[in-house]
Computed example of a mutant assay.
Amino acid sequence: MTELGETDRPAGIRLQKVLAAAGVGSRRHNEELIDAGRVRVDGEVVREQGRRVDPETAVIEVDGERVVTRTGLVHLALNKPRGVVSTMSDPEGRPTVADLLTEFGSAPGLFHVGRLDADSEGLLLVTNNGELAHRLTHPRYQVPKTYQVQISGPLRKETLRRLRSGVELSDGPVRADNVRIIDQAGAQILLELVLHEGRNRVVRRMLDEVGHPVVRLLRTQFGAVHLGNLRSGRARHLTRHEVGALHGAVGL
């Protein structure tokens, strides 16, 4: 009996190997997941060991969470400092997001997801996954973002209610999904504000409209991704679970 030539082999890569490359676990662990019926491929539970899949096109889930298996994709969290502009290049020579990503320079096509204005700080997602980036910033998917906002008081309860119920801006109304006071020192108040809007400088414009200009603005969360203890000016790769949660939030 002759051995199979390369052109005669079944197409694709073994599922347990694809899962291992995506960081799910060892091949043996992944075989146990498959035996337990915890893995789906294109919506179908797979219990067959050795099933071959195309990691570039297959939709693979473990325990209902998407596992991204396409090669070459990069998903980063960056803690943008104040004074850095949310662009990959700047004709005026100002410091940019790209300047903070030199250690990831070999990854092709990186770009930022949405923006933080130059005076704002905190979590900015950076990726070369165009479809994910598009959906994360599309109003249809209403991905929430959380900010810590320092303002000067005093702050009336009526103002908090107004932020929740809606503020009229020049380009239409906007309301906070949630807003609360998390700290206060003298006249300085620290708010936590959650909203899914992505309009230009929307947080600053909301607070200007209610008479409390922003002193400092820090984004701490974007969807399932938290800023955590990531140092200012540094970036990290998103975890497999964070990437899967972002895909799930926008129906990918």
Rank of each mutant, 00 (worst) to 15 (best):
R14L: 05
R115W: 00
E56R: 08
R164A: 13
V203Q: 01
T57V: 14
G43F: 00
R205D: 08
I181S: 12
L155Q: 10
A176S: 09
A36H: 12
S165I: 00
R216F: 00
T102M: 10
G114C: 05
V53Q: 02
L193G: 03
I13R: 12
I182K: 11
G186W: 05
V53H: 02
Q184C: 10
S232P: 11
R38Q: 12
I13T: 15
G186Q: 10
V167S: 04
G23K: 09
A21C: 04
L207A: 04
S26H: 10
Y147T: 07
V243F: 01
M88T: 06
D208P: 01
E131W: 01
A187D: 15
G50C: 10
H75Y: 14
P10A: 07
V45D: 09
I13Q: 15
L116W: 04
P144H: 03
G93F: 00
L4S: 12
T69H: 06
L195R: 04
E209S: 14
G166S: 07
P144Q: 06
L78Q: 04
E61C: 08
S106P: 00
V59W: 07
T71A: 15
D117I: 09
G93A: 04
R28C: 04
T146Q: 06
R82K: 15
V179K: 04
S106R: 14
A107E: 14
L33Q: 03
D35G: 01
P144C: 03
G228Y: 05
S86P: 11
P108H: 09
H29Q: 15
R38D: 03
S232N: 04
V74L: 12
V194H: 00
R164V: 09
L76Q: 06
K157N: 15
Q142Y: 00
D8S: 13
L252V: 11
D42F: 00
E61L: 07
G166R: 07
R240Y: 02
H112W: 00
P81Q: 08
D171I: 12
V53A: 03
G93S: 02
E168W: 05
P81Y: 01
E242I: 02
G43H: 01
D99W: 02
R135S: 04
V113F: 04
E56N: 09
D171K: 11
F111M: 13
R201S: 02
A249C: 00
I181Q: 14
A235T: 11
R180L: 07
R115D: 05
D119M: 12
T7K: 14
V53F: 02
S170V: 14
M88Q: 07
E197K: 01
L218E: 05
V215I: 14
L252F: 14
L195C: 07
G228F: 01
L123A: 11
A235Q: 10
G5S: 15
V85T: 12
L4N: 11
H196S: 14
E31D: 13
P139N: 07
R28W: 01
I182T: 15
L101V: 12
E121I: 09
R236W: 08
A36M: 05
G50S: 07
P213M: 02
L207Q: 06
A22E: 02
V68A: 08
L160G: 13
L230Y: 03
A185V: 15
Y141W: 13
R240Q: 13
L238E: 07
A133H: 06
A235F: 09
G153D: 11
P10I: 02
L191V: 12
T159P: 09
R27E: 14
T69I: 03
F222A: 05
V97W: 00
G37K: 05
G25P: 07
S232Q: 13
A20M: 11
P108K: 15
V194T: 15
L190C: 11
